[in-house]
Design a protein around this nucleic acid. Structure first.
Lengths: 228, 228
DNA sequence: CACTTGTCTATACAACTGTATATTAATTCT
DNA sequence: AGAATTAATATACAGTTGTATAGACAAGTG
């Protein structure tokens, strides 16, 4: 999706002095901790890219369309990152730790793209939100098959793997979002918190797979409909 | 904070035909799934409230100030809600289930206020974000003392209660935010997912308290620095 | 060459924004 | 009654926004 037409030499017309990617880059330069994508104006992006406002329409119909392209790119970047993290993980260290570390690492380096994916899934148009949701679900699905595979390999059970994946994903993303407002030196601390949280979830799902799911938690009295 | 001056009879001047609360209400009428607080304009709110644009300044200095007042109100509403949920919980059912149910219930009823708290903590000015963060932390702290108290009462251990509270809070809030985009009839399903997720965390923290924390998870090889 | 085609720019317009200034209206105090 | 004080308004202005229209430039075609 959002493919660039290949540079066939047989097409008439003027040589494009600017490309979609240039516009995306210009938009990226403008977003930041205080500037959300949905608050960018068409003219602003055009100005940053050094073109006339109307030239924008040659590449995108809307700012919304640009935003979705941005999300796509952020998603690709994230998927690449996670792929690498997974590769590193199975070799030496735990998935949890190395994934979290890779995530936080990317958070510092590639800040803007992650920013978009993390924080702006809640505002904006429907198309915008769906695009973010799609990337989240992608992340989630990959994590799910990973979890199942690892659980089988290690002989540990896993209760409701899909929900485990969902919980972990959402947790990583929100924690990452809040980490972005913190000074760089506190990122390691947040990463450590994330690792502990994820371990709790994993220990929980394993215990529940081993001993059966409890019908109530620490707060409630025993219930009658507890499963045998 | 944001106190109304008491109606002393001894102050000259014209009777105020509109109050801060009316402006807040007008702003609330405007926000929705497609309209974020930070995208509201001063004139728009004034128009909705039926006053001249400049009259806005009699009550707030900024739209930002209005936004923070909105967050305060949403926070109060949420705290009230949680207080009730906790009251109900200790009596008959589990904290987890009844809290989640109360949360989702409020989500449907009082949609707008929760909306603001849930979705808009990531965009907007610093003051805005800090206000949301403050409310989140409040929620978190209350939950933490609850967890510790319950763990003691039931004789179950609890590992890193503060982190448990944080994880649960963030999870509830993000899941709640995504639920708001779903049709009403799927809310129960999301609530069920949330309950399972939270139980995993609680079972996890209990197991870790009982058996000691694992030095690595299901994916990694044993590490040497494992705690005795 | 003229011709078409696609890219970009210039100008323009109506709508909207936040806010400054000045004026009017309502209420209480003396 | 009149003076004082405060809320609300009307008008106005400069800036920004999205976009419509029309024209200029460059590259390929016949």
């Amino acid at each position: 999706m959002t493919l660039i037409p290949p540079p066939m030499p047989g097409v008439p017309g003027r040589k494009a002095v600017i490309s979609r990617e240039d516009l995306i880059a210009a938009a990226l330069k403008l977003v930041g901790p205080h500037r959300s994508v949905s608050s960018l104006s068409l003219r602003e992006v055009a100005r940053e890219a050094g073109i006339a406002p109307n030239s924008f329409y040659r590449h995108f119909r809307d700012m919304d369309e640009l935003a979705i392209a941005l999300i796509d790119q952020a998603g690709r970047s994230l998927r690449h990152l996670i792929g690498e993290a997974r590769h590193r993980a199975t070799a030496e260290r735990s998935v949890v730790r190395s994934s979290v570390e890779a995530f936080m690492e990317q958070l510092s380096a590639d800040e803007k793209l992650l920013h978009i994916l993390l924080r702006e899934g809640n505002v904006g148009s429907d198309a915008f939100k769906q695009a973010v949701e799609r990337e989240l679900r992608f992340f989630e699905d990959e994590l799910c098959v990973d979890l199942v595979r690892l659980a089988e390999a290690h002989g540990t059970g896993i209760h409701e793997p899909a929900l485990v994946a969902k919980a972990i994903t959402r947790l990583i993303f929100t924690m990452g979002a809040t980490a972005m407002d913190l000074p760089r030196e506190r990122h390691a601390e947040v990463a450590e918190q994330m690792v502990v949280m994820l371990r709790m979830i994993i220990v929980g799902t394993q215990t529940m797979a081993r001993h059966g799911v409890p019908a109530n938690d620490i707060a409630g009295p025993p219930r009658e409909d507890r499963q045998a």
